[in-house]
Every structure is written in C-alpha cells, then in structure tokens.
Design a protein around this nucleic acid. Sequence first.
DNA 1: CGGCCGTCTTAAAACATTCTTAATCAAACA
DNA 2: TGTTTGATTAAGAATGTTTTAAGACGGCCG
Lengths: 235, 235
Amino acid sequence: MPNILICDDEPDIVSALQIYLQAEGYTTLTARTGREALRLAADNDIHLILLDIMMPEMDGITALAKLRETCNVPVILLTAKSEDTDKVLGLNIGADDYITKPFNPVEVLARVKSQLRRYLTLGSRPAREDNPTHYAVGSLELDDKGKLVLLDGEPVSLTPTEFEILKLLMQHAGEVLSPRDIYRRVWNGEPYGAESTVAVHIRHLREKIEINPAEPRLLKVVWAQGYKLDGEKRP
Amino acid sequence: MPNILICDDEPDIVSALQIYLQAEGYTTLTARTGREALRLAADNDIHLILLDIMMPEMDGITALAKLRETCNVPVILLTAKSEDTDKVLGLNIGADDYITKPFNPVEVLARVKSQLRRYLTLGSRPAREDNPTHYAVGSLELDDKGKLVLLDGEPVSLTPTEFEILKLLMQHAGEVLSPRDIYRRVWNGEPYGAESTVAVHIRHLREKIEINPAEPRLLKVVWAQGYKLDGEKRP
DNA sequence: CGGCCGTCTTAAAACATTCTTAATCAAACA
DNA sequence: TGTTTGATTAAGAATGTTTTAAGACGGCCG
C-alpha cells in the first residue's frame, strides 16, 4: 500500500487528511515543517507528498526545490492562497498538482489517486543525478552543453524541443514515459493542452534517429502508456 | 555553498533575509551601506548580492554601477518604491532582477535560486583566480595579455569586443552559449537590450576567422540555442 | 577646436527554422 | 463494432538569425 507523507503546520489539517487517506488504505507519515518533511522523505520509501506552502522554518516551495534535487516522487501542493503566483512557481519547480484550501476530501483523494497511478506506472524513479551533461544509450550519445547528438558517431541535428525530449528519454532509457509526463518535463509544467503536440515531435525525432520511422527500433510506443527509448544506458 | 551578500540599512530586513537564506544553507555577509558592500565584495568571494536601493551614504544604484566596473556577480535589487524609474535604472546599470518591498520570503528564495542557477551553470567567473592568459582551440590561439589572436599561426586583428567574444567562446569551446549569455559576460551584466548586437559582432568575427562567413566551420550557430566554437580545446 | 576615423549600437527588413494546431487516418483494445 | 489512443500531414504563427545600413560615440591629429 502506498505511503503518503503529509506536511502541514496546522494539526487539524494534517489529522483530517490522515483520516481520509487511512480510510482508503494508505499509510501516512506526517511532518510539521519543510525540513522535517525532507528528513522523512530521505529516510522512508514515500510514494506521494502532500505539501503545504505556508509553513514556519522552511516553506513548501523551498522544501520542494530541495526535494527535487534528489527525488521526484509526486508532490501535491496545498495552498491557502488562491493567488496564481505561488501555484505557478510551485509547478515550475516541479510540483505535480495543487489543491487550494479549503479543500474537499473527495477532491484530495481523487488527485492523490491520479498522481499515484501516473507515478506507479512509471515505476519508482531513481533520484535525479547531479546534472550530468553527457548521456549515452545504445548507439546514441548526447552532449547537453554542446547541444550535440551522435547516432553511431554521426551528428544528428535536432531542434530544441526534439533535443529536450530525446534527453529526457535517454535519462529514462528503458522506462515508459507518458506524453503527459514528457510534456510536463519538457514544457516546464505548462498545462497540457494540445494532446498531439508530443506525438508530432516524437514523429520528427523518429525521422531523424530511426532508419524506418514507421517501424521504430529505438523510440518505441507502449500502447496507452507512453513512449520508451530502447537500449542500454551507458556511462 | 553559495555566499550571499545582503546590503540594506534596515536591520530588520537584513536579519529576516539572513534567516531565510541561512535556513537554506547559504552563508551570508551583511552590509549597511553601499560603500561597505563594495568593500566586502572586493575582499570576499561572493556569489550573489541582495542590494537595497535607498541607503545612506552611498545608494544602491551608485554602488551597483561601481561594482559592475570590476565584477558581474548576480545582483538582485530590493526596493521600497514601486516606481518604475528606479527599477529601470537599476536594470540598465546591470542588476539581474529586482524585488519590491514588502517582499515575500518565498519569492526572494525563488529568485535567489534562479539567479544562482543561471550564474553557476555558466561556470564560476574567472574573477580573481589564476585566470589563464592563453587559450588554444583547434587552429586558433589567443593571448589575453598581448591581445593577440593567431589563426593557423597568422595574426588576426580584432576589435576589443570581438576579442572578448572570441575569448569567451574559446574558454567554453564546444559549449553552446546563448546570445544572452555572451552579452552578459562581455558587457559585464548590462541588460540584454538590442537583440541583434551580439549577432552583428558574431558576423564581424566570422568575417575575420572564417574562410567563408556564410558557411562557418568554426563559429557555428545552434538554432534557438546560441553560438558555439567548434574544435578541440588545447592547453 | 573641428574633422576624420575606426568601432560600436541600433533598427529594420529579409530570411530561415521551428512550433502548434487541427483535421484526418490507422491501430489497438474491449 | 465502437472507443480510445497514436500517427500523419500540412499550414500558419511564432520565434530566431543574418544582413544591411545609418548614426553615435570617442579618440586622435592637424
């Protein structure tokens, strides 16, 4: 059963959330500050975090930024403000969703469930490394600083978006990433609007790195799940 | 951990900022006047400056202008006025961002982080380290002290701006630098106004170091990313 | 002081590439 | 078979680059 970390400085909110979530069968941990949340997240196997923005000692946004340096478990922000600024800031830093207080238990559960589903199909992701600049998967090499991609040693010229998508897929070689995930990562958390945008770029990428784009050998699709880059990740 | 210099004449503000930033693990120095800030900046290795505009003895704008003569560490202006005049003036002189009081700690942290990220990814500035004086990339050699550039052993005569751009590109050979980055480095942090300025100088550079400026073999462009100097970096 | 010169900045236009969108078709699933 | 998801295409919008040319600025010299 998934572990959920609840972080908020108001005990009432924490216990309310705890009751809802436990009734659904989730196990919960609680923290009162961002710092405490970070420690708990480091020491436990957490599947999702509910994070308040306004907290003493270390606020949620900061905690989130710190957390994202090492881990990308789904985070849902809780915010009393309905101001857009914080939401946008949070989503840019890497929150997966947000809920404004006062919230409705049903909504919380729905969002928790939806985030967990998305996350668990991705498999637990390894912590993000301290930003490497060079990736190699199978016959592909990618140099982030030089914006250079080599396929079998030959340079391939990609557009910025194609480059970012390929980088993401190489970072997660062998894992399936949903179009939504790809969009979120590459477009820095902008709302996922036109559903086919990712597909178009995937097509362009395939034209450049596949021998036969119609029968991809590297950039495969997993039906109803997403895209996956085949090949061994090399150092 | 980054060093942050906080300069403001109101002790409450200074200590509040200090608390937020230290909670994040930053080390902080404080100054009460522009003059004091300049002295501290000269004697210490500072990574970012939070600078108040309204201060006794020497105001922030003046301090900033002076500072920019020698150093281009990121500067975030703090201003009680919401008047645009000061902001614009500050950004023209070379501030990287501004925050109006009263400010929200979250916003401050986010902006600090963003400036540091942008700044540090470019590699720490060669400030006072034993900065090398001689660079060689491919068939290019550059001697900083003698302001001399050799292409295949032949001297090339460059204007000062061209020289600085080429030096920057040689220091980062193989990396793509955006026009914005180039502008910031070469023009010591002035705001990036006329978008085509860098392009014009790049063109002039190409005329001097490329066989065919229209088809550059050394100074390449990576669309929507920036310029890159191709070739092996040699000692 | 005033004019000449090289350099830098700015603006505008021409040009090139890339992104998004929307519509349609094909494939996989139930 | 109907529904959902992915593939494909093409066109227009958006964005970035190159090139030109004119003017500003500052140094230098007569």
